[in-house]
Design a protein around this nucleic acid. Structure first.
Lengths: 219, 219
DNA sequence: ACAAAAGTGTTGCCGATACACCCATGC
DNA sequence: GCATGGGTGTATCGGCAACACTTTTGT
């Protein structure tokens, strides 16, 4: 049997929220400096080749940990990019993933020499078709945050509704009415009041919430 | 450079509407009888290996035409299935596609010796993980038909609103209010009245509509 | 007391549903 | 003219955006 020369890769668009200098947080994503041709010295999505014995999800999780040191709280397949001409030197089909990581995760992780974060809405020219991949990921994240409960994966186990709203605002790129936002998320039975409040704020202490997980809903 | 043994395939879930014996139409999908191991003599999705020089979309269109003789009016990537154990003999990553074909297309196409159609909601045990793939495709089709204008791709260039409604009903699996359905699709500026009516019906002749395409909207 | 964020109440609008009703054609 | 599907009108309901208002804390 003759072999195909097409190679299979996995790439991940990682999103984190980083507070603008003293202001409201915004979406950032990390890239890795390429140390080889093609596209030497350009920024590229974290990723790598798919090993024969590894599931796609596992490969995405592993390669993103290896290159950035991060452990995502959310990881899902985005789309598979396979145009013949997307790499100038060989045929590469890339299964792209979207990952969300908590801000404290980003602080804790080793920065990595060749890793750099950019604002998702102000990217440099990336290697291959990675600009298109990131744009598509941003678009999907925007639509998905409005109907799926994923925003809290940017936060800790417990969070205030202001924090959750601020996540939505950063993703959508515009402000939301605090009162209506509260009601819209409160419709979900999976949003649970912990009974505790966050102290140390200069004003009225907000209640802390958490999302019901598979584990927390056992029996 | 040592080669990976992982192989890349493309598979397509093809949907068409077929009138139940004298009744309302329902969703059907064609499968191909496997003539080799593994899963010899089981039904499998139309598809094939991805050639080195062919785009994913093109490979999906070509393989589905080769096996079933069909030419879809709609084709889009669904999801990539890559679990290590999804094939018992070798590692295969499959990029799955969804295709919609018009009923008259199905009539016209050569049936194919090893091709058989099944109701999408009453499938036999298929080869590999193809049952899961079809189920996922049905689920996605149901949600997508409610917000995207894709139902008309099951019909001809022009169609009555009853026909379009009947497509929605077949996909969703339940009846819709004719009056409200009419209004809900009429909100789209892309739905255009042709000015003609369909004659030969036993009752009041319905108006014929078409959807504005990229070509029909040129200046 | 005051500022500011947390949280509640109220109103108006808009889209979707339910369903009554009229229209046009073949028979 | 009558049966039948095509097509229109309309009342009601529920969700959501806007925004006024009350509550609770730190300073």
């Amino acid at each position: 049997m003759d072999h195909s020369t097409t190679r299979l890769a996995v790439s991940t668009v990682i999103f984190a929220l980083r507070p603008e200098d003293g202001g409201t947080p915004s979406l950032w994503t990390p890239f890795v400096l390429r140390t080889r041709q093609p596209h030497l010295d350009q920024w590229a999505l974290p990723g790598g080749w798919l090993p024969d014995g590894e599931d796609l999800d596992a490969a995405a999780a592993r390669t993103l940990a290896e290159t950035t040191g991060l452990h995502p709280s959310f990881l899902e397949q985005l789309y598979t990019f396979g145009r013949v001409d997307r790499s100038p030197t060989e045929r590469v089909v890339s299964v792209a993933y979207t990952a969300l990581v908590r801000s404290d995760e980003v602080e804790r992780a080793a920065p990595g020499e060749n890793v750099r974060w950019f604002r998702a809405d102000a990217l440099p020219r990336l290697a291959f078709d990675h600009n298109a991949i990131v744009d598509y990921a941003v678009q999907r994240l925007r639509t998905k945050v409005e109907y799926a409960h994923i925003a809290h994966t940017f936060l800790g186990q417990t969070f205030t509704l202001s924090q959750l709203r601020s996540v939505h605002e950063a993703i959508l790129g515009h402000a939301l009415d605090a009162a209506n936002f509260r009601r819209s998320v409160a419709t979900s039975p999976d949003l649970i009041e912990t009974g505790e409040v966050l102290t140390g704020t200069p004003h009225r202490p907000p209640k802390l919430f958490r999302y019901r997980t598979a584990e927390s809903s056992r029996s």
